[in-house]
């Protein structure tokens, strides 16, 4: 991962390809993510969406191509299938631990407010082992919001969430976007999430099948349906 030079572009991928051993996952992915934009990352199962997100976060290195990021790691947040929650700690202790890892000075009141935001204040002293999948995902969302990131990587963030929680997630995404944060959002619910996105990257047949404005993608979808 290299530092970016253009301050208006938070993330840039140039001809990124990736192999797992000798199996090609995808090739020649190129994109730019400007500040304040939401990019929906879609595609069928096995298209390499999660792998691409891991490459974007710097978690894994691409086999070839370059990834340029203008965001320091303390301003990057990832919310994926896995919640990063320690079941043996309470919700509050989990948040406090992750605040410490990011050198964030958060008072008890601030942490309580975050837990209240995701509807977990009443459970904050309970062991996270007792949390349902949806509650765990909401606690994970609180962790991500606590970081006040410039760029969010959301890999199917609504997994396990009920309708009310999904609405809360959309509201928080909208707020983050208004303060200038960018989002990369992996979604399987295209119909539901498409309206939130400025751009769409669609992976299919091991390549970038579409990258462009959401309105153009809708046209492509219509053509395919007919």
């Amino acid at each position: 991962m290299h530092e970016n030079i253009n301050p208006d572009v938070l993330l840039e991928l140039d001809r990124v390809s990736h192999f797992f051993d000798d199996r090609l996952v995808f090739k020649n992915i190129s994109l730019k993510l400007p500040r304040g934009e939401v990019m929906l990352l879609a595609g069928p199962n096995g298209a390499g969406k999660t792998t691409l997100v891991h490459i974007m976060t710097g978690l894994i290195s691409p086999t070839s191509g370059t990834v340029l990021s203008g965001v320091p790691s303390e301003k990057t947040a990832y919310l994926g299938h896995h919640t990063f929650i320690y079941p043996g700690l309470s919700g509050l202790e989990n948040l406090r631990f992750w605040a410490g890892m990011y050198r964030l000075h958060k008072s008890l009141e601030e942490l309580e407010d975050l837990l209240a935001l995701v509807g977990l204040k009443g459970f904050m002293h309970e062991n996270a082992r007792t949390f349902s999948r949806g509650m765990a995902q909401r606690l994970s969302l609180a962790r991500v919001l606590m970081l006040q990131p410039d760029i969010f990587f959301l890999d199917e963030p609504a997994t396990g969430m009920d309708a009310q929680s999904r609405q809360m997630l959309r509201n928080e995404i909208s707020k983050a976007r208004h303060r200038g944060a960018s989002l990369v959002w992996v979604s399987h619910s295209l119909q539901e999430d498409l309206d939130q996105a400025d751009k769409v990257l669609y992976l299919e047949n091991k390549k970038q099948a579409f990258f462009g404005l959401t309105s153009d993608f809708k046209d492509v979808l219509q053509e395919r349906l007919h």
Binding site: L59, S73, F84, I85, Y86
Partner: peptide, 17 residues
């Protein structure tokens, strides 16, 4: 193994340290 249950290992790797 405590970092494996919910893949908190990824979180640690992404933390700025």
């Amino acid at each position: 193994s405590s970092e494996g249950s919910n893949q908190s290992r990824i979180g640690l790797l992404l933390a700025p340290m």
